[in-house]
């Protein structure tokens, strides 16, 4: 029982990274119609920037949780203005290729600057060790990651459902043409939304820094799982991205625990089953597909 509980916490922690990043991916896709292949590289950038700031300026984990996403937001704004917006009118394949190229470029630049062996990162003392709940011992950091990302996802959800900004973004995510037709200037929201999506990937990266290897390649396999998450959740669906993120984390952990040889395959089997049963994903709308 204790082991099962541990697997669950580990699954939810792994799922937190997916949920946060997938949320960003879903929002960008919804509003811009851009499949951001550079999302994995932005997750990597979040971790690398956190490690570099710690090394150079001594900026610790807690302020990094705010500073790094802000920097990534600005980076996203620059990328959107300089490149993505220029291809917006063309076939979405162009922006897909652009972001794919961008991810290659970012990975190689980081390799060139910081080498291939990875960067060190110190975990804050308070998050080290184990959390004791009676006879259960849970890894503190993973519990923190889960609760923190749940909080962020809830915050984003409130922003989306309770504010005017959120209403516009949701409307343009789910019915982009109709929203335009109703006189909302969707274009004005494109740049900040792109930046916001990138910032979420960066935030996932900062959370990963104390817990995972910080290397230029850390986003390369992450992005592939991330696509599976978005497909399972329903493309462009905000709730879907979060739910599927945690779901995939759990499936991965249970897979590793009970069928280790199949642990990566199960995610894609799940994805295939979802596509077969509900082509638009768990939370996607059929008519949008």
């Amino acid at each position: 029982m204790n082991a099962f509980l541990l697997y669950t916490v580990q699954g939810l922690a792994a799922g937190s990274f997916y949920a946060l990043a997938a949320l960003g991916l879903a929002i960008i896709f919804g509003v811009l119609g851009v499949v951001n292949f550079a999302h994995g590289a932005c997750y990597m950038l979040g971790a690398v920037v956190a490690a570099v700031l710690l090394d150079v300026t001594g900026l610790t984990f807690w302020p990094a949780l705010v500073v790094v996403p802000v920097l990534l937001f600005l980076f996203g704004v620059v990328i959107e203005r300089l490149f993505v917006s220029r291809l917006a009118e063309l076939d979405p394949l162009y922006n897909f290729l652009l972001t794919f190229g961008l991810s290659l470029l970012l990975v190689d630049l980081i390799k060139r600057q910081y080498g291939v062996s990875g960067l060190p990162y110190t975990r804050p003392e308070v998050l080290s060790g184990q959390l004791s709940l009676g006879s259960f011992h849970l890894p503190t950091y993973q519990v923190f990651v889960f609760l923190f990302s749940l909080l962020v996802c809830a915050g984003v959800w409130l922003l989306m459902t309770r504010t005017r900004i959120g209403m516009i973004v949701r409307a343009s995510t789910e019915k982009s043409d109709l929203t335009r037709a109703l006189g909302v200037n969707v274009k004005a929201w494109v740049t900040p939304v792109f930046g916001f999506g990138i910032a979420l990937a960066g935030l996932a990266g900062v959370l990963a820094a104390p817990f995972r290897a910080i290397t230029a390649d850390m986003g390369s396999s992450f992005i592939i799982i991330l696509f599976a998450v978005v497909v399972i959740g329903g493309l462009g669906s905000i709730v879907g991205a979060v739910v599927a993120g945690f779901l995939v984390g759990l499936v991965e952990a249970y897979g590793q625990a009970y069928a280790p040889q199949l642990s990566q395959i199960v995610i894609f089997v799940l994805m295939a089953l979802v596509i077969l049963a509900r082509p638009a994903g768990l939370f996607g709308r059929e008519e949008n597909a």
Partner: peptide
């Protein structure tokens, strides 16, 4: 159309990972 593209991308990327 773009949603199909994303689905296709995910499937292709997944195969690439496995390979």
């Amino acid at each position: 159309m773009t949603k199909k593209l994303l689905t296709a991308t995910a499937v292709v990327s997944a195969s690439a990972l496995v390979l």
